[in-house]
Computed example of a mutant assay.
Amino acid sequence: MSEHIIKATGRNVEGKGASRRLRRAASIPAIIYGGKSAPQPVQLDHEKVWLASQNEWFYSSILTLDVDGKSESVLLRDMQRHPFKQIIMHLDFQRVDQNQALRVAVPLHFLNEDKSPAGKSADVVVTHELNEVEVSCLPKDLPEFIEIDLSGLKVGDIVHLSELKLPKGVEIPELKLGKEHDVAVVIAKHGKEEAETPVDAPAADVPAAKVSKKDDDKK
């Protein structure tokens, strides 16, 4: 597991006004919470974090926040983005206890699909039903991604969640809930099967329902 270090600075002033001033100064307000320590407000350099956020490890790996020279092992738990500008508005980081199991969504990497019998066939469609999977493990065992070798994939094949090869110490909590949770991850089928799938008949015209005040308040 690679170490990803991100520098941060502690901050004493909080509130919307302080956060706006930070953003104007090309910094990101953030909070570190969890563990036995009190929540700690910090700020990070926007440009460096923006570049880091273009990598999938930023969302699924344990990060090392260097806060004024003191290291904190954390996971990114929430990111608020500007609705239309390329601006990160706020970040939430959760402290990591090395002795406590984590639940983290890990990306799936699909390998050798183009070399498989299904991938080489022009009339076969290979669909990825999932692009990530939630795993449970100790921090030291957390993988940055899980690889799925599709070199033997043939038309009609379905790769299920239970067939994923997990690193030692890693498990998928979803599978403990029953067979119905062993969902498809990859499906290979003839393209014409999709074309022949019957389309539901259009629903009858129904007058638009009135929006209740409760629903309206959610908007």
Rank of each mutant, 00 (worst) to 15 (best):
K219D: 07
H160V: 08
P202D: 09
S71C: 12
V211G: 03
S37V: 04
R24V: 07
T127P: 06
Q86V: 11
K210V: 06
S37P: 03
L65R: 06
L63D: 10
V106R: 03
V13N: 14
G17Y: 11
V126P: 10
N112H: 11
L164E: 13
R23I: 01
I62S: 01
A30K: 01
V125H: 11
G34E: 05
A122M: 14
I28L: 00
N99Q: 08
K16H: 15
V126I: 08
R81C: 04
A203W: 09
A105Y: 10
V124A: 03
E194C: 12
M89A: 04
P39S: 00
Q43N: 12
A209M: 09
K7D: 10
V135L: 07
R81A: 00
Q94P: 05
V104C: 07
Q100N: 12
K192L: 06
G10S: 12
R81L: 02
W57R: 15
L142V: 06
V67R: 00
N55F: 10
A18M: 08
K7L: 11
V185H: 12
E144W: 09
A30M: 08
P107A: 07
E163N: 12
V42M: 04
P83K: 05
S212T: 01
I31G: 01
E47Q: 00
A30F: 02
P39G: 04
R95P: 04
P117G: 08
A30C: 15
P83L: 01
E3I: 13
K7F: 11
V13W: 13
I172W: 00
S73V: 13
D66Q: 14
K36Q: 01
A195M: 14
F110W: 04
V135M: 07
M79K: 02
L63I: 15
P39I: 00
P107Y: 00
L138I: 04
T197V: 03
V125G: 06
E132K: 05
N99I: 07
I146C: 12
E180H: 02
P198E: 06
R11V: 07
D200V: 10
A209W: 01
Y59R: 01
T127R: 01
S136M: 04
H160T: 14
F84I: 08
L51E: 11
Q54W: 00
G119A: 15
V124M: 06
W57D: 13
E56N: 14
K218Q: 00
I6F: 12
L161A: 06
G17F: 07
K214Q: 03
L166I: 10
Q54C: 09
N112F: 14
K154Q: 09
M1F: 12
E171N: 13
S60Q: 15
K218L: 03
T64C: 09
D66G: 15
Q40K: 13
D123H: 14
D182E: 06
P198Q: 06
Q43T: 05
R11Q: 10
I32N: 04
